[in-house]
Design a protein around this nucleic acid. Structure first.
Length: 782
DNA sequence: GTGCACAAACTTTTT
DNA sequence: GTTTGTGCAC
């Protein structure tokens, strides 16, 4: 591979830069003094500590505009890194908009990974790779590791590949190559991890492949061992900007420090209070240490918040104050006071979901003197994705439109990955991982044994699995039905490979041919599971996505790094997502359910990381509250089903940390006269209990745990709960309603005749049952 | 080689 | 309570 070609990095840029020099700077007038300081401090190291909602992206993009507009830098001399493609896209768009014209260039604005791919392709040979290396995703990675574990004669049940992948990822995040894994860490995986790591790297090299961690790690290695190359890039990237600096891991940190080592024109933007990715290698320490790493750094705090009301900011501030070792920020706003943060406790998780559903509906209309909110204005942010189900179930039954953000991404779906494996194999026939994935998908009668034969023949002849398969067929090493099918596959693949050169055939058509002739589409057409139609739909979408690319190869190149879920369905909908997914977003009204010790803060986080874990959870709480613009509603349930077991829950310790004067304790429904009549008397004591629950604990969580162990947080008598159920059970059912029957399980109502219901049960099929034996799916007694 | 039954595990997630 | 993966029988 030729070395970095200087001319192409600078091409087309100088003209634009010169033309832009010394233009007026109206964009500066839009900034507050701190933002403006951050934009104008172009030289030397700058740390922009940007609290939630303080106009961080604006400052960052304006800074780029300023660099360009003043002629300080040309577009291709700016290295601007983000974590997600979404952030990179937005930044590109906003730079263009502020500049009032499309920016030609900005070739180095992108994610850490996409920039590293570009760099690594130019220098691949320095780490024994070819420049056309493939990028493995987690799935490929795990399959590869599994093979290595089995080859080493290790029981892969006791030591699952997934766990090893975690260990290796972790090491790569810390920039540890197999040679410098510290002895203290080597005991992982029964002491076998270091050797397996080494084998894994060797295997990757043989496959001419890298995983995500390698992209960074290889570049760090290259920079560390080739001073001349590093020096070259230090000259080229004259200005460096980093978004979400608090999320950088050690490898990314080293990479940045190496590149900024010469001129030190590096501007890092971040918020130590929003560091929530420690579990995947992010080091808050990087941002805390910035001034030590870059002596003389200018630290600029963005503290004026343009998003939330004072009550919300104060509540968030009260919680985050519990963390030690913060850089310290005090958010303020000019916004009117607004509503206090609302706190409400519920009997159990289902009631919480029911209440939030009703609250969303009444907020749509406008209630309690509040303005009306659209469904798009409201979001439910949960700690763990399994919490979403209760809401989905509930919203489905009441017909409240919702969208789940996050979830399995398009390119991670089975059918998409299968289809891509076919494409990969057509474009590069030596892609053994792709071959393994699809040899027997759809079923070709090639099981373990046949596949081992192929492996052996390929290894003995030193060829790829596909060539090995061809040999196996020739030699008759595989017999019967499998032999024919395998022979057909081999022939088909080479035919499709030749067709890539056909000028009269578009790659989109070729893709369709591949999916049809391989029998892959047919496989799903014959599949009767409920997911099958959706999968076929996804395949169509995949083919459509191909249109935007020149050829199959170009498509595959991009897809490995762009794992976005593009399709934004329209229509007014409530959003449901995890707190992690909510970072960077904002909503007028936010619901934060499930604030219970063990769930939030998560027990596992506390067990595994102790105080550090609690602090990260606390930052998560801070992120959650600060997503809200006007209304923030926190809730907890006294009882919750955890892995099928009912468990008594303690309100989250973070609830105690909410400053009382900014919190309004709401009364749960069913506990006061207005709602379900029967519970009036109980309500008052329930309310008092609730209020006490929220305020009484000022002791640390663990002490509370001890003193209150075994007690029920909310002692609501069973009767009142039951009466609510009965009231709903006898009330009229509706068509399509999801219901539960003791014997037949869940089902949907397809017919109503007097007191008899015709129900299509998920497991038992269509049955007629008497209405009183059926309960709403959310009212299942326990 | 494929399909069914049972057991075990079970955050958060981008590239 | 669910999913995922493995063991066993056909």
């Amino acid at each position: 591979m030729s070395s970095f070609d200087e001319s192409d990095a600078f091409e087309g840029a100088s003209l634009a830069a010169r033309a832009m020099a010394a233009r007026p700077m109206p964009y500066l007038d839009d900034l507050n003094p701190q933002q403006r300081a951050a934009v104008e401090a172009l030289q030397g190291p700058v740390l922009m500590l940007a609290g939630a909602g303080t106009g961080k992206t604006k400052a960052l993009t304006t800074r780029i505009v300023h660099l360009l507009n003043t002629g300080t830098a040309r577009p291709n001399e700016i290295l601007a890194v983000t974590f997600t493609n979404k952030a990179a896209r937005e930044m590109k768009m906003r730079v263009g908009r502020t500049l009032g014209e499309a920016v030609e260039g900005m070739p180095w604005l992108g994610t850490f990974h996409s920039i590293c791919v570009k760099l690594l392709r130019r220098h691949a040979e320095l780490v024994d790779l070819k420049s056309n290396f493939t990028i493995l995703d987690t799935d490929d990675q795990i399959r590869l590791l599994k093979q290595l574990i089995q080859a080493a004669g290790i029981d892969d049940k006791r030591w699952p590949a997934r766990a090893l992948a975690g260990v290796i990822d972790n090491w790569k995040n810390r920039a540890w190559t197999p040679d410098n894994v510290p002895a203290s860490e080597a005991s992982a995986f029964d002491g076998k991890a270091p050797a397996l790591y080494r084998q894994y790297q060797t295997r990757l090299r043989e496959l001419n492949a890298v995983d995500f961690g390698d992209l960074l790690l290889h570049m760090v290695t290259i920079f560390q061992t080739h001073e001349d190359i590093l020096a070259q890039y230090q000259r080229w990237f004259r200005y460096i900007l980093v978004d979400e600096y608090q999320d950088t891991n050690v490898a990314q940190y080293l990479w940045l420090r190496l590149l900024a080592g010469g001129h030190k024109n590096i501007c890092c933007v971040g918020d130590d209070d929003q560091s929530i990715y420690g579990w995947r290698g992010a080091e808050v320490g990087n941002i805390l240490r910035f001034e030590k790493d870059f002596p003389g750094a200018e630290v600029i705090r963005l503290e004026q918040n343009y998003r939330s009301t004072p009550h919300i900011l104060a509540a968030a501030g009260g919680v985050i104050a519990g963390n030690k070792g913060r850089l310290g920020k005090e958010l303020w706003t000019q916004a009117p006071e607004g509503e206090k943060v609302r706190l409400i406790g519920h009997w159990d998780g289902e009631e919480e979901a029911r209440w939030i559903g009703e609250e969303i509906e009444s907020m749509q209309r406008g209630t309690r003197g509040m303005r009306a909110f659209g469904l798009d204005d409201m979001a439910i942010l949960v700690r763990a994705s399994h919490q979403m189900r209760a809401f989905e179930d509930r919203f489905l039954t009441i017909g409240l439109p919702y969208r789940v953000i996050g979830g399995p991404r398009f390119y991670e779906r089975m059918e998409i990955r299968d289809a891509m494996a076919y494409f990969r194999l057509v474009v590069s026939p030596s892609d053994d991982l792709a071959f393994e994935r699809i040899v027997n998908t759809p079923k070709r009668g090639l099981g373990d044994k046949a596949q081992q034969t192929i492996q052996r023949i390929a290894r003995d002849n030193g060829v790829s699995l596909l060539d090995g398969a061809a040999l196996a067929v020739e030699q008759g090493a595989i017999k019967g039905k499998g032999a024919n099918a395998l022979g057909k596959l081999v022939v088909d693949l080479s035919r499709w490979g030749r067709m890539t050169g056909d000028k009269d055939l578009s790659h989109v058509e070729l893709a369709e041919i591949i999916l049809d002739e391989s029998g892959y589409t047919e496989m799903w057409q014959n599949d009767k599971t409920p997911e099958a139609p959706g999968r076929l739909e996804n395949l169509k979408e995949l083919v459509k996505a191909l249109e935007q690319f020149e050829n199959l190869g170009g498509f595959l190149e991009h897809v490995s790094l762009i794992m976005d879920n593009e399709s934004e369905e329209q229509g007014e909908k409530v959003s449901i997502m995890t707190l992690h997914a909510a970072k960077g977003l904002e909503f007028p009204a936010v619901f934060l359910p499930g604030w219970e010790d063990g769930l939030f803060p998560s027990q596992r986080s506390m067990d595994e990381s102790g105080l550090k874990g609690v602090e990260e959870e606390r930052r998560l709480a801070y992120v959650g509250i600060t997503r809200a613009e006007e209304i923030c509603t926190i809730s907890f349930a006294g009882n919750r089903r955890v892995y099928g077991q009912w468990q008594s829950q303690m309100p989250s310790r973070f609830i105690d940390e909410l400053p009382e004067e900014h919190v309004e304790v709401l009364t749960p429904p069913g506990l006061y006269g207005g709602g379900y009549g029967a519970a009036g008397g109980i309500g008052q004591s329930g309310l008092e209990q609730m209020a006490a629950e929220a305020n009484v604990y000022n002791s640390p969580g663990w002490r509370r745990m001890q003193s209150r162990a075994g007690e029920r947080p909310i002692s609501q008598p069973r009767e009142s709960k039951s009466s609510v159920i009965d009231a709903q059970a006898v009330s009229s059912h509706t068509m399509g309603e999801r219901v539960f029957h003791q014997k037949f399980g869940y089902g949907a109502i397809v017919g109503i005749e007097g007191d008899k219901l015709e129900i299509d049960f998920e497991k038992a099929g269509v049955k007629k049952v008497v209405a009183r034996f059926v309960t709403g799916a959310d009212d299942v007694p326990f």
